Simulated assay, not measured.
Amino acid sequence: MAKRTAVKNKPADGVNPRQPCPCGSGKRYKACHGGAGGGADVIVSRPFEGLAAEAELIALREFVPSATVKLPLKEGAREIVLATVLPMAAAGLVRADGTAFVGLQVQTRSGDLSRDLARAVQWALTAETGDALAVVGPDDGTNPGRLQDLLDPEATLSPELHPDFAWWLPPDNEPTGDVALSLERANAAILPTERLDAPGVHAAYWVDAGDKAHLRWVRPESEETLLAALARLSVRGELDLGEGSRYAGSFRAHGLLVPVWDLDRELHSSEWAPGAEALGKRLQDALTSLDTEPLTEPERRSRDGLRGRQITLR
């Protein structure tokens, strides 16, 4: 009887098979990209970890309706524009004027959104005018790595928000027929959204949901650390942006926590910027205090209550 020989991937340079996989999945290398199959089906729970733009990428992926921003690529002969969503939820397209886009709000084809986006960027760098990439298809062996390999890790993003999807077409191009109908339908689904502009406030978005407005703020801290700081503010009665606001809960998105506040929608989005700035400073102070001051019993109870206040986007 012939002996069976196990086939294993060779360890990556400098990676111990028993150490965490560099992809960020949380699994050991030998059980992930160091195992048979290379970890193609491994779910990466925090795909943008390590990028200064992580929180903004999550906001653009999860709830910002219409926005664009130039990708800070390390190298490349072509400018690539990252978009929230493209026509037919395409993974990429090159507009008639030659502008190349990749989309964030797409169906993923693997467990690693960062790797799928890197492959869309690779496609966009060489695609021709008028080309479109409906989905990121099966791996063709060209492996561009992950988004972290392509972007400047220290670069931040300041997306341009749009009131509609007119930017799908080149300037001065009037839509007709099916294109006009598609634009009309997409525009009708947009919830008015504004990015708050204030010192120390990043990835915070005001959203008009109809009956009320919300602030959705993607935070970079670990969930447990952030919940502890929020609990400290809650016990002090400081977990708000001022009159007409209240903390509603939070939701998880790609490994980070997104706290949400209900806001009086009669106030303009810009009127909440000072409150967000002040809350950001209080939150930073609370985070710093955790290093030397453990949570009190009331704060621990508050933290447990906040942990259970999970909300769902609609």
Rank of each mutant, 00 (worst) to 15 (best):
L157G: 08
A134Y: 03
P159G: 10
L150E: 11
G141C: 00
D139Q: 03
I190K: 07
G137K: 05
P171T: 13
G145E: 11
A188C: 09
L161C: 09
D164S: 14
D172H: 15
V136S: 14
E194Y: 14
P175W: 05
A186G: 08
E184T: 14
R195T: 14
L147E: 03
A155F: 12
P175E: 10
G177E: 08
L191W: 08
D172Y: 11
T193Y: 08
R195I: 14
D178Q: 07
G177V: 00
Q148S: 09
I190S: 13
D172E: 15
V179A: 14
H162I: 02
P170H: 08
E194F: 13
R146K: 09
D149T: 01
N187F: 05
R195C: 14
P159E: 10
R195Y: 00
W168N: 06
A188R: 12
H162Y: 12
D152G: 07
A155H: 10
E194I: 00
L133N: 13
I190N: 12
Q148M: 01
L150Q: 11
Q148D: 04
L196F: 07
D152L: 10
G177T: 00
D131T: 00
G145Y: 08
A188D: 13
D172I: 00
P192N: 04
A132N: 01
A198H: 15
G200F: 13
P159F: 10
D197G: 00
D172T: 05
A188F: 03
E174S: 04
L191H: 13
E154C: 00
T142M: 07
T193K: 08
D197V: 14
L133S: 13
P171F: 05
L191I: 00
N187V: 06
A180S: 08
P175G: 08
V135C: 01
D139M: 02
L161A: 07
E174I: 14
H162F: 09
L183Y: 09
N187K: 11
D197F: 00
Q148E: 05
G137W: 00
P153N: 12
E160Y: 01
A186E: 11
R185N: 11
G130D: 00
L157M: 09
T176G: 13
P163R: 07
A132F: 03
L150Y: 09
I190P: 15
T142G: 04
A198M: 07
